[in-house]
Design a protein around this nucleic acid. Sequence first.
DNA 1: TATTAGCACTCTCTGCTAATGAGTGCTAAT
DNA 2: ATTAGCACTCATTAGCAGAGAGTGCTAATA
Lengths: 353, 353
Amino acid sequence: MVEYVDDRKKSILRAIIHEHILTAEPVGSRTLAKSYKLGVSSATIRNEMSDLEELGFIEQPYTSAGRVPSDKGYRFYVDSLINEDDHNDNSNFKVDFKELRENIQFKKQGIQNIMTHMARMLSQVTHYTSVVCGPQMQKTRIKQLQLMQIDNKSALFILITDTGLVHNKVVKLKTTIDIKQLSYLNEFFSDKLRDKELTEVNAKYLKELEKELVHRIDISHDLLEIIYNGLTLVSKPDDFKFYLGGTSYILDQPEFSDIDTVKRVLKILDHEEILKDLFAKMPNKELEVMIGHENDLEDMHKCSIVFATYNIGVKASGKIAVIGPTRMEYPRVMASVNTMSSLLSKIISELSG
Amino acid sequence: MVEYVDDRKKSILRAIIHEHILTAEPVGSRTLAKSYKLGVSSATIRNEMSDLEELGFIEQPYTSAGRVPSDKGYRFYVDSLINEDDHNDNSNFKVDFKELRENIQFKKQGIQNIMTHMARMLSQVTHYTSVVCGPQMQKTRIKQLQLMQIDNKSALFILITDTGLVHNKVVKLKTTIDIKQLSYLNEFFSDKLRDKELTEVNAKYLKELEKELVHRIDISHDLLEIIYNGLTLVSKPDDFKFYLGGTSYILDQPEFSDIDTVKRVLKILDHEEILKDLFAKMPNKELEVMIGHENDLEDMHKCSIVFATYNIGVKASGKIAVIGPTRMEYPRVMASVNTMSSLLSKIISELSG
DNA sequence: TATTAGCACTCTCTGCTAATGAGTGCTAAT
DNA sequence: ATTAGCACTCATTAGCAGAGAGTGCTAATA
């Protein structure tokens, strides 16, 4: 029984993985002996490979084929074999990095546009499909809240949170409203709601406000409902939007040359509910990799997901992810995702002031 | 030389198309004779098919295979053979129609969310990939324009157009600003810009405004730039956003079982620039079909596009489209696209008041 | 004792051939 | 004008042989 993974085994495993990432084919002992400077013969490699198979790091698609890294093998690679080697791969993408930054910051406005753009860039850089997940508010406070008159039966409801994000909604009122009423309401709400946490402003609290208002002004119920809806819309914990990029990159991967496998993955990307589940289960770590079977979705067992959490201060956070085959260029992708995530953090934070 | 398409030829062509839509296979004379009540033998059908081929309505993939409708055949079908038969197919989708409407109107806010939802519904209803294209402003006027203070170095710039759409952007100022200045500016801009067409407010006009302002207040240049950016962002004629739905539906189509064909189409959907070109070339008709080679994109020659134009009053318009194989269920899809487009018109118009 | 060369064995993949069958076009009969 | 019958075409499929890549085992070697 083999237990300890010595340096030679590590080198061989690393070589197998690199070769497999390159070719997408099972890799044999002869190829390794020829292409990698391992200093031993193919026979020795064969023996080592046999051990690595016993350890569960590699497997044979069928008797007497080459070996393919298993999920466990990739896991070991990501955890223990990466740091030592290439971190230099991301040099080539730092080039358009500055441009990207300017691009996003100046041309685009609004969080949706930034997210869309981000997803596109991430997939362009990694050549894999990417998913960017809109920020999820926690402990966000109301910074400002205002009603602005549009005409005498409608107003614009504006909500600014302390993360700097702005939400607005046009409000149709059943009764007419004049400027005096409006400015009264504005003062009233500003006074009552400013600096409150979004979650504090629940139905119950608004009921109370309504009681206070009801003798003074008659359109209160209408309005309070709007405000309530606005608030829940912003703070809803499980309501985040997804922005996809480079969906078609999956099709470039030879392991997804089977139309049915691709279909299953794309169906998942088409369904936000499923993505939501998937993202909900991810830990809030800065950078993390889910390899093959480590995610719960049957249809994604041939995929790995590299994801990172971005933050807007401590108030809100979201995730960005890259989805590719388990045979993924982990070092490069991890570097990219990491960089992009902190870039996104910065951009949004700056946007929020 | 055959020239006139008599009723029997029409019936046979229709039968061929229906059968082919059903099976995705070349259809032979025997099948037609058996499954459709044409009242003639397979030999006769063979002769007629020979004529239809000569007319260019159907073609043989190879000698002595069944016939497949050509683009020209589908075109003839869509133009002349549809009205007569099934318009009843859309009965099954009127069910979730009401629900859909409520869904969109009440739960969702903001034009982006409506569009996203719309695309999803459209693909769900048709079982094809759908593209919804954000509204494009024409002759839109400024209804209201306001700066709202956030803190002493930033303000929220709000622009409401007469289509009722609201745009906002957080503005960072280099110098501090107080309430007096702000309200002065608000009045100034409201006065100058209200009811102007977006396109009127160009760089030149703003230069003039700047001159007027410059003796009175010192932050003018900063602000004017912001305003200018905000305006161009809204009015830019070729800047519309796309919302995709049901991307994976393409993979359900047997003619896209070849991974390479699919890849080409998905690549197009991944690239907004290309979609933009495609949509720009569509006529502004209420409902229109582009069959196979009728679109300019080489890689989409196996696809048909059913699209409709929705309107927000006369001020703005946009398009929604369904993309599927040329072997598409035209009657059903056309009905769906049509309905959805007018629904969208209504929803947005109501939203705009 | 660890490594290596050599060899038999396994299993996929490729290319070939023959058989199958759906569908046509033509001809002759109705 | 329509139809039955028949010969012909051509994609598709199954079956089979040979090649090639890779392994595991054994015996020789340092």
